[in-house]
């Protein structure tokens, strides 16, 4: 069930659009902000609130890779693997991250601290390679500087 806060925040979005369904992405982001991810149950609840079928909404949810349909760790690492970052050393970063965290892309560390995901571009090619942790952008990352960065996220 949606919490009163979630419901309130979603309903606050409604007047901004001609149709309820238009709020669906915002609604999922709201739930994800509160819970870290969007469960099957949340999909059903949001769909009901917005007058959609769960199938309609899940089609939208699964289209966007930043709507998490599985639980994630406390911090989500988005590692850019597109061309600029790849040229500038993405592969070394990727290897180091996987080794250090003991996970592959799409997995969460056993202490539920980090989830590692690839992303196609962070819009900061001039400072490649780049990664994002939570809402923080980290640029010109080297394998060594990255170790430092990770320490800041508990």
């Amino acid at each position: 069930m949606l919490t009163p806060e979630e419901r309130q925040e979603i309903e606050a979005e409604l007047p901004r659009y001609p149709q309820k369904q238009a709020v669906c992405i915002d609604a999922m982001k709201i739930v994800q902000r509160h819970r870290g991810w969007v469960s099957d149950e949340s999909i059903r609840d949001i769909a009901e609130l917005l007058g959609m079928s769960a199938d309609d909404l899940d089609g939208v949810a699964t289209f966007y890779n930043l709507i998490h349909r599985k639980p994630v760790g406390r911090h989500v690492i988005l590692l850019c693997n597109s061309v600029s970052c790849w040229i500038m050393g993405y592969e070394r970063l990727h290897q180091r991250l996987c080794k250090r965290l003991g996970v592959q892309f799409g997995e969460t560390t056993s202490d539920e601290r980090f989830t590692l995901l690839p992303i196609v571009c962070l819009g900061t090619c001039d400072h490649a390679p780049a990664l994002m942790i939570g809402n923080d952008l980290h640029v010109d990352v080297t394998p060594d500087s990255m170790d430092q960065v990770l320490e800041n996220y508990r």
């Binding site: 099957d40 999909i43 079928s53 199938d55 899940d58 089609g59 699964t62 289209f63």
Partner: peptide, 16 residues
């Protein structure tokens, strides 16, 4: 009650 889910070559046609 039927839709397409996901993207790219993992687009999935079925139910929620």
């Amino acid at each position: 009650d039927f839709n397409v889910f996901g993207i790219r070559n993992t687009a999935y046609f079925g139910r929620y």
